[in-house]
Amino acid sequence: MSRPLTFTPPPGTHSAPLRTSRGTFASLVAPAAGPAAAGPRPTALLLPGFTGSKEDFTAMLQPLAAAGYRVVAVDGRGQYETPGLDDQEAYAQGELARDVLAQAAAVGTPVHLVGHSLGGQIARAAVLLDPSPFASLTLISSGPAEVTTAQQRKIKLLTTALTKLGMEQVWEAMRAMGPLQDADAGDEPALRRRWLMHNPAQLIATGRQLATEPDRVDELAALPLARHVVSGERDDTWPVPLLDEMAVRLGAVRSVIAGAEHSPNTDRPRRTAEALTAFWDAQED
């Protein structure tokens, strides 16, 4: 489970509904606050991972804004504060990708698109549908195809539980398995609330996607788009050597965040923000 550092937007940022042609999405917005660039810079659009939310990027918002970029982090449909239907077909990858295209249009193109884990695979699908709105694509801890066998087993257990139990019961079962690693005791009420607000149909459908995603790296590599692969030093969802290989296949810039694991955006948010802004700044040269 993704564990944000805080659910409180930092100073200079705010919560706002992002109204699009495909519905309204909950978002956190940080206006550009750094020195003015030579011209308007693309907006950064940040997509969270499985069981996550826009709050997974909270600690990155100020550093990215201070570097001169407007930042919008969103909850996808059925995630946390964005409602979704109880129909798993509503969360087909193509539907989620079209949501991203609508979000990009709403924030104003061009867009630096960033996706963490599941969000990276949805971001990839959006770019493959239509690359024209995007100035670049960054995949954070998001691999070339399906997750590891061990993670597939965990997803299968979760899916089985979600089909038989309510969200509250599943939460209690997860808590009974042990404390939330790296989470402060004070985080638990907010994490519980976020979990309960996820739509179980979204979790089942996107979990299936993570367990069965095909390799589409060659398709992505063929697009005329700047690409960036970011990860921590360790990753139990996609092994780091696999991410290294994917970056080579993509011809992508590669950033490894020291001291981070599967969620460098929460493990080492400032270092991750620095890697993003260095990549984006390089696109202006």
Rank of each mutant, 00 (worst) to 15 (best):
R268C: 14
L118D: 04
A59W: 03
P133D: 03
A44D: 07
G76W: 04
L118T: 03
A222Q: 09
L196N: 07
A26L: 12
L128I: 09
M197G: 02
D184H: 13
G115D: 03
M177H: 08
A211P: 03
A135L: 09
H14K: 03
A221G: 10
E245Q: 11
E245H: 06
Q151Y: 15
T237Y: 08
F134S: 01
D215C: 00
L242G: 04
S142K: 10
Q79D: 06
I122F: 11
D86C: 09
Q62S: 13
S142W: 06
Q152R: 15
I155R: 05
Q79M: 10
M246V: 01
E168C: 04
M246H: 12
E95H: 04
F25G: 08
T51C: 06
R124G: 03
D244G: 08
R192V: 07
A105F: 09
T237S: 01
F134T: 02
S231T: 13
A226Y: 00
T58K: 00
A226F: 00
P110F: 15
A260H: 09
G115S: 10
Q152L: 00
L158H: 04
G143C: 05
Q151G: 02
E55M: 04
G232N: 05
A161M: 12
R216A: 12
V72E: 05
Q169L: 11
L96Q: 03
R70K: 06
V72I: 09
V107L: 07
V74M: 09
G68I: 09
L46D: 02
T266E: 12
V107A: 10
R194A: 11
M174I: 05
D56C: 12
G232D: 01
L28A: 12
R254C: 05
L203D: 01
I257T: 06
D215I: 01
A90K: 07
R216M: 09
L165E: 08
M177R: 15
R227N: 01
S263V: 14
T163P: 14
P9N: 07
Y91R: 00
I155M: 02
P264W: 01
P17H: 10
L223Y: 00
I155K: 02
L243E: 08
A258T: 11
R19D: 14
A37N: 08
S141H: 04
R153H: 11
P133E: 04
V147G: 00
V240H: 02
S27Y: 05
S2N: 11
A123S: 14
S2H: 14
A278M: 13
P4T: 02
G120Q: 07
V248E: 15
M60L: 04
D187A: 14
D56L: 08
A36E: 14
A173I: 12
S136D: 08
T138N: 10
S263D: 13
A59Q: 08
T206V: 03
G186I: 15
A211V: 05
P48K: 06
Q62F: 07
A67E: 02
G259F: 13
L45P: 03
Q88L: 07
Q169P: 13
G76F: 06
V147C: 00
A92R: 07
E274L: 14
E172A: 13
G49W: 01
E261L: 08
